[in-house]
Design a binder for these strands. Structure first.
Lengths: 365, 365
DNA sequence: CCGGTTTAGAAAACCGGTTTAGCCGCACAG
DNA sequence: CTGTGCGGCTAAACCGGTTTTCTAAACCGG
């Protein structure tokens, strides 16, 4: 058995078959330009040698990679441990495989997104958590790659997919107000401290994520105003967008002597954290404290009580982003498209009137 | 503003700077071979033109891609929605980014893993759910790529990372037996029906997953035998490895008039499904039914009651697989390595003595 | 039997870089 | 004054394919 036999090249096949490289290439790519007999013989030889065209060489000549990039300022390991991305990636993946494209994740390498982009061999990029002010956007466009933004519409000449964060937030706040709550704590997402260290090349995600935070906050405010109330900035506490972050933020608020009857969390993970912290303080949810999340991750419907939250179509967001991107990739002349998807409030078991006033829904699945 | 200006090539930089392509290349890769002055001037010109070496061309000459492949027989969208893979990918990602490698997911394209592998531009591959009998293994090796197997040791000449499935299963069964259970239902993972259709090129995952199933089943059996009992094949029911699959399997067993006091599920999702189904039948967990899972996914400790399960270090499995792979990639001479990681039983709230006999642990977090 | 069109395949250019071999001019040793 | 070594850079080969251009033989009608 042949050991360490380095991969056969097209020239090897040509030599063994007694033809030119051209003929071998034709045998695979345009067999009609060869006699049936020759084409068959070449393919047979190729098979026996275990020949496969080298994918990199192929990309170089064809100027396509048949791969799409998913650009995120977060580290890869974060992407995969985050339930939001799990859904988003699922949508992205479904669209990509439907069209026969592979997926490459473009995330900081040794802390640098710039080098990661420089290495990416893709035909187009979907970027999430990134907008105009990021130098990365310019770099991708400089490379001549189509780019579709998710959760940002900022450079308006780029394709984009966003959701109605404002409307969703408005509905969430209105729901609590309608139930009779007045002392409402808002848990905002704080900008994560970049990726590990403040590396030389990038003030990363913060601002783009901030945009989402701002939109949701605006939605909350609108609901307050519509009800003739005002959102006291002292009742807005920021924390990391995780279970622990939510718990910590709630505890901090409690320590500041805030005694809310309800919580508006900007993410389900934070909401779950708030519930945990509240329970540790002896509060019952929803009897003593109502909690509304945001995003509607899978877990939200599986906890007890099931979480009232604002649903946003995360899978679909990924799916559509790839769809728009592929339109640009496959017909470069086509106009960029903008898409805005709806959000909607899903009332489950974690909200009720304050202080046990009125009926208590309990666990209504 | 320059429109559609196609990406500058190295020749453009050379022309503008009045030097050869070689000099430009040196300016970036071996500046010491140029006078400081020339190197600076070239870099300046390159910068002003927005030049970036074309990554594909670079890969071709350097014969490295600085990317690793994650090979799975499952569709990409499955990978991202599965909590097991979420943890596995997290480990993989952490190791890859630590070493400055990108990650490419190699999953069936239009149902064919073979074409996906043919397109993959990577320096090495980690394969999960795949073993000797799969033609894909041969293809990867034929391409001259280092390959590390996860959850299989079958072609022994390949690097591998496995966990002690047998020992974990033994501990799980022993735990139930010790609590006094005798009527124990086993929920096995059934082979998923390939990817969509029975496409021409691949009898995919089934057999490799079956190997894990077999190992766990053997572990259960061993515990039974050690206690002088026997595992009745009629009490082994197969189902899909999901919450719904677990629920369905439990219901099927119930319909067959099996009345277990405990369940050994080969995955946490199945265990959760069994719990749901049992509750729907009016059973209380753990009072009327004890349930033990396998894997210890994140969710396991967050449900109520928290799930007693066999912990396997999934993140670590991914991390170590990449570590072994990189050793082969970076020093091709190095010997392949085999790693076996431990599993351990984690007793939480979903198990108790049968029929409320003895004390009831309740929710002990 | 001849000029023109097909057909089958080869030669060469190309994709966009890196790398090897080598050239040129200058300083320095003999 | 000549040979040698070296710094600084270039020409050309190369990576492994695809694609364009070109050629020789077969075919074809008149």
């Amino acid at each position: 058995m042949e050991r360490r036999a380095s991969r056969p090249r097209i020239a090897d096949v040509a030599r063994v078959a007694g033809v030119s490289k051209t003929a071998v290439s034709f045998a695979f790519n345009s067999p009609e330009r060869l006699s049936l007999e020759t084409a068959d013989r070449i393919r047979e030889v190729a098979e026996s040698l275990g020949y496969r065209p080298h994918p990199v060489a192929r990309m170089l000549t064809q100027r396509r990679t048949m791969a799409l990039g998913v650009l995120t300022p977060q580290a890869l390991s974060v992407i995969f441990s985050n339930p939001f991305f799990a859904l988003f990636n699922e949508g992205i993946a479904r669209a990509a495989e439907e069209h026969g494209y592979e997926l490459h994740f473009i995330s900081p390498i040794h802390g640098s997104l710039v080098t990661a982009i420089g290495r990416a061999t893709v035909d187009g990029v979907v970027a999430i958590g990134v907008s105009a002010e990021h130098p990365e956007v310019g770099q991708v466009r400089g490379a001549g790659l189509p780019l579709v933004l998710v959760d940002s519409e900022d450079p308006p000449e780029l394709g984009s997919v966003v959701v109605d964060d404002e409307g969703g937030a408005r509905a969430a706040a209105a729901h609590l107000i309608e139930l009779g709550h007045r002392d409402i704590l808002v848990l905002a997402v704080e900008a994560p401290q970049a990726v590990g260290d403040a590396s030389a090349d990038a003030p990363l995600g913060p601002r783009a994520e901030a945009a989402v935070t701002v939109r949701r906050l605006r939605g909350y405010e609108q609901a307050f105003e519509s009800a003739g109330l005002a959102l006291d900035p002292a009742w807005v506490v920021a924390g990391r967008a995780s279970i622990d972050g939510g718990a910590a933020a709630f505890q901090r608020a409690w320590a500041m002597d805030l005694r809310p009857t309800a919580v508006l969390a900007m993410g389900d993970a934070m909401a779950l954290g708030a519930i945990r912290a509240a329970r540790d303080l002896g509060l019952r949810v929803p009897n003593d404290l109502s909690v509304v999340g945001f995003d509607d991750i899978d877990l939200a419907s599986h906890v007890d009580p099931a979480l009232t939250t604002v649903h946003q179509p995360i899978r679909q967001k990924g799916f559509e982003a790839v769809r728009l991107l592929l339109a640009e990739v496959e017909q470069p002349a086509s106009p960029v498209q903008h898409l805005r998807l709806e959000t909607r409030l899903i009332v489950r078991g974690s909200t009720a009137p304050p202080h046990g006033r009125g009926e208590v829904p309990g666990t209504q699945q």
